[in-house]
Design a protein around this nucleic acid. Structure first.
Lengths: 107, 107
DNA sequence: ACAACACTTGGCTATTTTGCCAAATGACAT
DNA sequence: ATGTCATTTGGCAAAATAGCCAAGTGTTGT
């Protein structure tokens, strides 16, 4: 693994790490159709507003979402919609796992 | 967020979490073309064999790779090749970030 | 200027992840 | 059976992550 490869992999891992949290995945799903302010998003999650805010800024930091201010509110929107389509392959893994698990139980 | 949604998101996040590490991404790239034994993989990474082994079993646990024994060696192979194609979208994020960063420097 | 609102940031603790070493397992050869 | 090779597992310490509360920032309305 060369040093350049190392850097490339670090960068990729950073994006994946940003995605790898249930609350953040939920937030991204909410943003898929349209932008939302933090207040909209907080309602659906059972976590402190500050926690949601931190999740959002983490996603922003990773370049996955962006924000704009409109009066008192801050609206977040998805920058890279393909990320959510991408999850179809994750779903493939889960289905495969489910089948394997079922087979193990039957056996 | 319903409880069922919660479970679904947890499962997805677990797979993403397994992917979200530079060494593990490298291991997956090695396995993309063909299966490899641990000894093959250890050579390319500057980490202890035991560390590599733990990364591999984590990936296996997540259902991303599988293993078979052949004599003294254990061969790992990629179970869900689409995961690596999927990363093209991660690359999109990174390119976008690079452009944004460049623009900020210029400004 | 001041209060109210929407959000972010700092600070803290609890939990999880990482990676090394050393010890254990499993397969094969002698 | 004993030794050796390939790999896994246990145990531990260091680092990163998560989430709450409280305090701070920025905006609007009075």
């Amino acid at each position: 693994m060369t040093e350049q490869e190392q850097l490339r992999l670090n960068a990729r891992a950073a994006v994946l790490k940003a995605l790898a949290h249930p609350t953040r995945l939920w937030l991204l799903e909410q943003l898929q159709q349209q932008e939302h302010c933090v207040c909209d998003l907080t309602d659906g999650v059972n976590a402190d507003i500050s926690t949601v805010s931190k999740h959002l800024s983490l996603l922003k930091q990773a370049g996955i979402i962006s924000s704009r201010r409109d009066g008192k509110q801050i609206y977040y929107r998805l920058e890279t919609p393909c990320l959510l389509n991408m999850l179809s392959c994750v779903e493939t893994v889960l289905e495969k796992n489910a089948r394997t698990h079922a087979a193990l139980i039957k056996a």
